[in-house]
Design a protein around this nucleic acid. Structure first.
Lengths: 124, 124
DNA sequence: GTCGTTGCAAAGCCTTTGCAGGGAA
DNA sequence: TTCCCTGCAAAGGCTTTGCAACGAC
């Protein structure tokens, strides 16, 4: 049976509060504001569980490493600004999933990464 | 100055021969067929160099790890079959890059991952 | 009282780095 | 001969795991 603990509540709270993709280190440090004893291993273990349940999504980024975000949000993509190194959520979807793969391929999900410069950095 | 060595030729040969995204382990084992002494560190170092020169692209995949492929090929996306765990190259681009990001964002490149089942696995 | 969960530390990957020897130019 | 490149081994990150204590139910 699955048990509710302060550690798990804290991790979930962090996701709802931040509402963005985060790395383990961020989740850990925000979580420790609520439960100071919170351990890395606990975060990894609970995230693995949430991944299996489909409650969070995992994102792999070449330079930002592994990030996690809540699943079930409105569909969006990610934009990485290589100037300020921040990750942005972009609403909507400019991908035609029907045309994305040839006949025969069953497309269940997709992930789009955009690389470039954000408005703030482009203006500066 | 940059020097041409048998190790580097071997690595380049592997890329041209396989013509697909590969992990370090694959590059290493194919490369060792040509240069048995080929070392992991050498592969990592040369790939880093090729990345900086823009001759190869790096791909981060949640379950497949870090993959490398030659840059400069015709634009394509990647499809990961979670049944056979293989990665496919899909020709073309169903992404409308102009609509992909709001005004102000400067989009320089993008990467699309599709997840699902490939024709072979779907038919079985 | 059970047994799932946690913290700690050790162990496991993957990747990078220091160093001395080797080889391309 | 010069000095870049390589192999080896050690070191560095990130992630997982074993184990005993803890705590939700």
């Amino acid at each position: 049976m699955r048990r509710k603990t302060s550690q798990r509540s804290a991790i979930e709270h962090v996701f709802r509060q931040q509402d963005r993709a985060m790395g383990i280190d961020e989740i850990l440090s925000y979580g420790r504001e609520l439960v100071p004893s919170l351990n890395q291993a606990t975060v990894y273990r609970y995230l693995k569980l949430l991944l299996e349940k489909g409650r969070v999504k995992q994102i792999s980024h070449p330079s930002l490493g592994t990030l996690y975000e809540l699943a079930g949000k409105t569909h969006h993509h990610h934009f990485h600004c290589h100037a300020c190194n921040r990750l942005f959520n972009l609403p909507g979807c400019a991908l035609n999933e029907k045309k994305a793969a040839p006949e025969g391929f069953v497309v269940e999900d997709h992930e789009v990464f955009l690389f470039g410069v954000c408005p703030a950095c482009a203006g500066a």
